[in-house]
């Protein structure tokens, strides 16, 4: 049985003692697709049809309903909303201007949760319930709620992942009118968040190549961001800007499965 096996793998990963889970293992876990099915079972998303397609085709498979996309988005918003609420509640973690910035982001993520729940219900669907989260990712980010630098590094990873997640689902909302517009309106807010968190941390607001400026374990968040081919045009052949600038100028999508693989590290 695939699901119990995957669940067991995820369980082993999330319960392993911290000292036995070096960063390299965590990094591997970020790209370990075998845990996907377990996470989906945990999240309860009705994505059987999508999963049947090869990884690279899922976003374009056309077999994912609008409600499925919105529930996928809702799961990510649950993750972000709870993360920021916990951060703001953690004594002494966030102070001064950074606290004000995070409170603004938190307000948006909480609003996104309510908005998506209403949108899903309005479309005749049933909003998924929130997963149970472990923002230490099984101990990889043990001080996430006591060390502001760790908190902000994880925040950056969540925001940059969120941008890629919405982008990857746009095609599944083609022709969906108001729903597509709303998804795009959330997408650009996530990008604003990402830019601000990155800049607070001393990075540029935009992503250079596939360079991971978050925690070392977050390399999967940036995988493929160095793509330079768009609409079949190799942009390096038509531009006068440098390679770094060119890759900064485009954000890249992630498939639903790749996003859930990342988010799954924080789902118990």
């Amino acid at each position: 049985m695939k699901i119990p096996t995957a669940l067991q793998g995820l369980h082993d990963l999330s319960t392993a003692p911290e000292q036995q889970v070096p960063l390299t293992s965590r990094r591997q876990a970020f790209t370990d697709l075998t845990s996907l099915v377990g996470k989906l079972a945990t999240i309860g998303l009705p994505l059987g049809a999508a999963l049947a397609a090869p990884a690279g085709l899922r976003a374009q498979s056309g077999s994912v309903s609008v409600t499925d996309v919105l529930n996928f988005a809702l799961t990510l918003e649950y993750l972000e909303a709870e993360f920021y609420e916990m951060g703001l509640s953690a004594s002494g973690l966030l102070t001064g201007d950074v606290r004000t910035t995070i409170a603004q982001i938190s307000k948006h993520e909480t609003a996104h949760v309510a908005f998506l729940q209403a949108a899903i219900s309005g479309a005749g669907g049933t909003p998924v319930t929130s997963p149970t989260f472990d923002f230490t990712a099984g101990g990889a980010f043990a001080d996430v709620f006591s060390n502001p630098q760790t908190f902000l590094a994880v925040a950056q990873a969540f925001e940059d992942t969120g941008v890629r997640a919405y982008k990857g689902q746009a095609g599944n909302l083609l022709g969906a009118g108001d729903v597509l517009t709303a998804a795009l309106q959330i997408h650009s807010v996530e990008a604003r968040h990402a830019s601000e968190v990155r800049r607070i941390r001393g990075s540029k607001g935009w992503i250079t190549g596939s360079v991971n400026t978050s925690a070392p374990a977050a390399s999967a968040v940036y995988a493929g961001e160095d793509n330079v081919t768009h609409l079949g045009v190799n942009a390096t052949t038509v531009t006068t800007v440098t390679m770094d600038e060119l890759t900064q100028a485009y954000d890249e999508p992630l498939t639903m499965s790749a996003v859930l693989d990342i988010a799954g590290l924080f789902i118990v």
Binding site: G171, S188, V189, E190, S195, E196, R199, Q248, A249
Partner: peptide, 22 residues
């Protein structure tokens, strides 16, 4: 109407949003 065009627009708009925030 074309999903590939929508994706390209998505690749660019989030960079514009990153600019706007900065």
């Amino acid at each position: 109407q074309n999903a590939d065009y929508l994706l390209v627009a998505g690749k660019i708009v989030s960079v514009e949003a990153r600019h706007a925030a900065a």
